[in-house]
């Protein structure tokens, strides 16, 4: 297996192959599709995961989300984003693109 870059402000999260986002017909919410589970995402989780394309860094994702979470500073938001991403990584749904 390729070595996996660590999770920090500069890492670029990407959904693993075979993990996919779609809209749920009945709720309109985003769901994360993976083997044997569909995870319904609340709005802020959806905002984060939609940006996990391997293009943006954690810092860039957090910056883009500043307008939704006006009560948080950028460092605070980064911490929250990383905390959430860590959980997805632990469940094998997310990987980090090596810094280019």
């Amino acid at each position: 297996m390729a070595s996996i870059a660590p999770l920090n402000q500069a890492s670029r999260p990407r959904l693993r192959p075979g993990i996919r986002l779609r809209h749920d017909r009945s709720s309109g919410q985003l769901v994360l599709l993976a083997p044997e589970r569909g995870l319904a995402l609340n709005a802020s989780a959806g905002e984060i995961i939609q940006r996990c394309t391997g293009e943006l860094t954690v810092e860039e994702i957090a910056t883009e989300l500043m307008h939704i979470h006006r009560d948080l500073s950028l460092p605070e938001l980064e911490v929250q984003v990383m905390h959430f991403l860590r959980r997805l990584m632990d469940r094998g749904l997310l990987t980090m693109e090596m810094t280019r």
Partner: peptide, 8 residues
């Protein structure tokens, strides 16, 4: 099935 809401 998809129209009924199936996801997989």
């Amino acid at each position: 099935a998809e129209a009924l809401g199936a996801l997989q």
